[in-house]
Amino acid sequence: MIARGLAVTMVLSAASIATGFALGTLLAVARRSGGRALRGAATAYVEIIRNTPLLIQVFLIFFGLSMVGLRLPAMLVAVLAMTINTVAYTCEIVRAGFDSIKPGQWEAADALGLTRAQAYWHVALLPAIERVYPSLSSQFVLLMLATSITSQISVEELTAVANFLQAQSYRPFETYIVTALLYLALSLLMRLILWAIGCAVFPRTRLAAAA
């Protein structure tokens, strides 16, 4: 049961991180370069999500969809809620990376004749993500730990399994010690994987690691 719960936690984290990172990056681009209405909507979304508890967001989506007759599996609702949360935090982190790009770099891109898409990719997006990658990595680890909240809507992830086992065995201390160690091991594994991805994608990170 613990192994199955750990697997659910890993799948939930991976799905939410991959989708949330892609959508959050697009939202950061829209927040910087879109029209006034789009920027306002993106800003409102980020502020609402970042200033309300994740647990409340999970409940609102889970019970809100049920009220309109849309009954989805708890796992799918959990992925949706975690993704919505990840998008907001990723957007804000990537936006900070965009703000670190100096105006002279945009002018250099124009002087070289780069298209808007090429300038965003080579001058803004990749350098911005490289600069904020440590913050993104920490946020993704926190997201993995936050998957424990989805146990409140009956997603059978690691914390939900631990709750069930301690209720059956009447040994909460031993159960939660093992659960905490598993979360610790998973956090360290995620940090290692994210570090390896950073070394593979960003040359300067790879050179620093080699040095």
Rank of each mutant, 00 (worst) to 15 (best):
F63T: 08
S100A: 15
L65D: 01
A96W: 01
F98T: 09
I56H: 01
L125I: 05
A37L: 15
G35Q: 05
T115R: 14
G97C: 11
R131G: 11
L114Y: 12
M67I: 08
L65P: 06
A108G: 11
R36A: 14
L76G: 06
Y89A: 08
E130K: 12
L38R: 02
G97T: 13
I93C: 10
L26I: 13
S33M: 02
L38W: 10
V132Q: 09
L26G: 02
F98R: 01
L26E: 07
M75Q: 12
A74F: 02
P73R: 04
P53R: 04
C91K: 00
F62T: 01
L60C: 13
F59V: 11
L27R: 10
L114P: 02
T25P: 02
A22D: 01
C91N: 12
R36Y: 07
P73L: 07
V29M: 13
F59R: 10
E47R: 01
L60Y: 14
I93E: 04
L60I: 15
Q118D: 14
G104D: 12
F21Q: 00
V29K: 09
L65E: 10
G40E: 09
L72M: 14
P73A: 01
L112D: 12
L54K: 02
V87F: 10
G34R: 05
M82C: 03
L72C: 08
I84V: 15
K102P: 00
L112C: 14
A74D: 15
I84P: 00
A81D: 09
V132R: 03
K102G: 06
V29Q: 08
S33A: 13
T43M: 09
L27N: 00
A44C: 10
L54A: 06
W106C: 00
R31H: 12
T83L: 10
T90G: 05
H122I: 03
G104Y: 12
T83Y: 05
L38N: 06
N51M: 03
L26A: 15
V29P: 00
G40R: 05
F62Y: 15
G40C: 12
G64N: 07
I93W: 07
S33Y: 15
T43P: 00
A109I: 12
V94F: 09
L27F: 09
G24Y: 13
D99V: 12
Q118Y: 05
L72I: 11
R50K: 13
L38M: 13
Y89Q: 08
F59G: 07
V123W: 07
L54S: 01
L80T: 10
L70Q: 07
L70F: 11
A96H: 01
A119H: 06
A124T: 14
A42V: 12
L126G: 00
G97R: 03
I101A: 09
V79R: 04
L80F: 13
A119V: 12
L23P: 00
I129G: 03
S66R: 15
L65R: 03
A111D: 05
V58I: 15
Q105V: 06
E92Y: 08
D110G: 14
G64T: 04
A117S: 14
